[in-house]
Amino acid sequence: MSIIVNLDVMMAKRKISSQELAEKLGITQANLSILKTNKGKAIRFSTLNKICEILDCKPGDILDYEREEKYE
């Protein structure tokens, strides 16, 4: 997928552990891991809102878009 989740970068900047963030978000560590490793298929606005609130950042700081190059 072209959407890249840079959650781990922002977590490192804010010095917050996965366990702490998962607890604050109210999701399991397994689900947070799915999000961090780009395996997720969708993210709820409510989850994104909470992440931005906890990490004090904007959605653009967490989500990035990279164009996929198609080789023929």
Binding site: I34, K39, G40, I43, R44
Partner: peptide, 8 residues
């Protein structure tokens, strides 16, 4: 179900 499971 897969889509729902992978929606965080």
């Amino acid at each position: 179900k897969e889509l729902n499971d992978l929606t965080i």
